[in-house]
Design a protein around this nucleic acid. Structure first.
Length: 229
DNA sequence: TCTTGATCATGT
DNA sequence: ACATGATCAAGA
């Protein structure tokens, strides 16, 4: 097992080491078997890079590197570096939301500092041959946070007001709510139309692809302008 | 073609 | 059931 990085610098240095390598090469280094596809191993890439970078294993509701205040997110991208999928953030709380604000929300907590690692994700490329890209350490700027906060508030208002069944993935400019469960049979409690308790499918918060695309793109621009060439 | 809604694996 | 890690795949 690889020990956790002691500081941000060490984490970034580790991430830089695997940029350009294939998942097969990283897996081989860790003595981990590469699946033929991700149909039954949807979290495999994320878990692989967590292991390599020394993130703590387990399913605790914390950042991957809580001692550094950093969350790790792998993001599948196409040949142009554009995201192929939305990004799951956390489960949407449907009950006991009294007094919860944006500042105390799980969404803000998870997104305050994220290490994005793009990985080739096109299904035409064998999993073992997919390459790891350059990591991007990101925190939302004021404009991004304002949009996130607005979306979060709109969606949470509906949940609190018993409108969860009316929430669809079409709502939210950059933040959306979609089902998040093992299957269609999973149920959890929520507030119903009349303020009563109902059972509904568990939901999660996700970032739209365009939002993460902007994060990756803007990073490249700022890097170019700051390096002065 | 692309997004929404559905689903898979694992640990607590 | 819910948290972690996400991608799949049906239908618009």
């Amino acid at each position: 097992m690889i020990s956790p990085p002691v500081n941000e610098q060490e984490l970034l240095a580790r991430a830089n080491l695997i940029a350009g390598y294939t998942l097969g090469e990283v897996a081989s280094y860790l003595n981990i078997t590469v699946p033929a596809d991700l149909k039954r191993d949807k979290g495999w890439v994320g878990n692989l890079l967590e292991t390599y970078l020394g993130a703590k294993a387990g399913s605790k509701p914390e950042q991957d590197f809580a001692h550094l205040g950093i969350e790790l997110k792998t993001i599948p991208v196409d040949a142009k570096g554009h995201p192929l999928e939305t990004t799951f953030i956390c489960v949407a709380p449907l009950m006991a939301n009294h007094g919860v604000t944006w500042d105390s929300s799980h969404v803000k907590y998870k997104l305050q500092k994220v290490l994005w690692i793009p990985v080739e994700g096109e299904r035409t490329i064998r999993v073992a041959e997919r390459r790891v890209g350059s990591a991007i350490l990101w925190s939302p700027d004021s404009e991004q946070e304002n949009i996130l906060k607005q979306d979060w508030q709109e969606l949470m208002d509906m949940i609190v007001l018993g409108q969860i069944e009316k929430v669809t993935a079409r709502q939210g400019e950059v933040l959306q709510i979609r089902p998040k469960a093992a299957n269609g049979q999973a149920l959890t409690e929520a507030i119903g139309e009349d303020g009563n308790i109902i059972l509904t499918r568990p939901r999660g918060f996700y970032l739209r692809k365009q939002f993460t695309a902007d994060i990756l793109h803007n990073y490249v621009r700022s890097k170019m302008t700051s390096s002065g060439s």
